[in-house]
Design a protein around this nucleic acid. Sequence first.
DNA 1: AAACATTCCAACCGCGTCCGG
DNA 2: TCCGGACGCGGTTGGAATGTT
Length: 367
Amino acid sequence: MARRTSGPKKKLRGLWSPEEDDKLINHIAKYGHGCWSSVPKLAGLERCGKSCRLRWINYLRPDLKRGAFSQEEEDLIIHLHSMMGNKWSQIAAQLPGRTDNEVKNFWNSYIKKKLRQRGIDPATHKPFPLAAEASRAAGAGSSRTAVFSDAELILSSMTTAAGQHMPPPPATAAAESYVYSYSHSSGGGGASDGSLSGYNNSSKQTAADHLGAAAAAGSYLQQQDPAAADALHCGPSGVPAVVLPSVSTSSTLNSMAGLSPAATTTDEQCNNNCSSCNNAFELMSATPHSHSNHHLPWLEMGTSGYGGAASAAVVDHYGAALDELKWSDYVFDGYGGQAGQSIYGDSKDAVQFVDANALSSSSWCLN
DNA sequence: AAACATTCCAACCGCGTCCGG
DNA sequence: TCCGGACGCGGTTGGAATGTT
């Protein structure tokens, strides 16, 4: 992989030899890197400080994980990318033992391709126009794929069974307020005791991962918009209290920051139709809330528990926070993959939008 | 087995930011 | 306030490894 070992610029040295690595490791072990520009001279290397820094950070650091990315890491990368864009260093910061360069390469060589294959624009995390059009054409059927247009969803969220329009969601929420139904055949047992008993064996680890991932996203949200994070009940550590995903949902991502529709419900949404949901705020204690067929209006979540001005404030906060969220968030929930399975992976479950006919204007919570 | 194509990823480049003088 | 050096980040490159014909 010798790179530019010959050329006009003398300073280019190509691959690092084991001897060079040893020198750098020994030097840093003894003295630390201090000022990188002085490292090459002190370590006896014919490299620039920048190159030494890069070599250390990307390859020699003892805490690097190396090896293939796990499914959870992949999911997290996709989700974080949907929130942050190409902020590789920030994304890598949420992945212990991974470097920005590694994440970037993984994205460019693998994830990007995977998303494209699924008709998702990796840059926007939204469907390619053609794919959306194809989906629209196929939309006449009872089940649709996860490829859809924003406008289509907004429309569906505003229409009731009688063809009447639902009260419009808050303006900031409208663009993101997708109503969809997640229909998952395998479902998942409910667990309201705060344990992970609602998760099957293979899901428990993923459930634990959800917490970590949610914490990461919560932390990010705290940084970006503390007020919004507070509205989402992010604790001081950045961990949102509303984090547990529905066990019926597939991946790490649907739980991110508790922002996903499947991850939370509220009293109003559930009281009428959900006998197993006793208290909306059970959710806020990170209790697994497994209602595989909840059809909740995204963004309505959490706000109905607040009254009047407080609710409006929360909505504002949500709006600000949700500006950061993109299509993949919904996809992640929408896909009904098994726990630990990337929603971008093959899945036999198809996302279904809530048929407008299934919604009443008085309740968002339907089974 | 050879030639060619594709993939992967370490390394480099250039730019922006930070910070001390 | 300006300047310059150091640092960090994201984008790009190009050659080794791997796959395909």
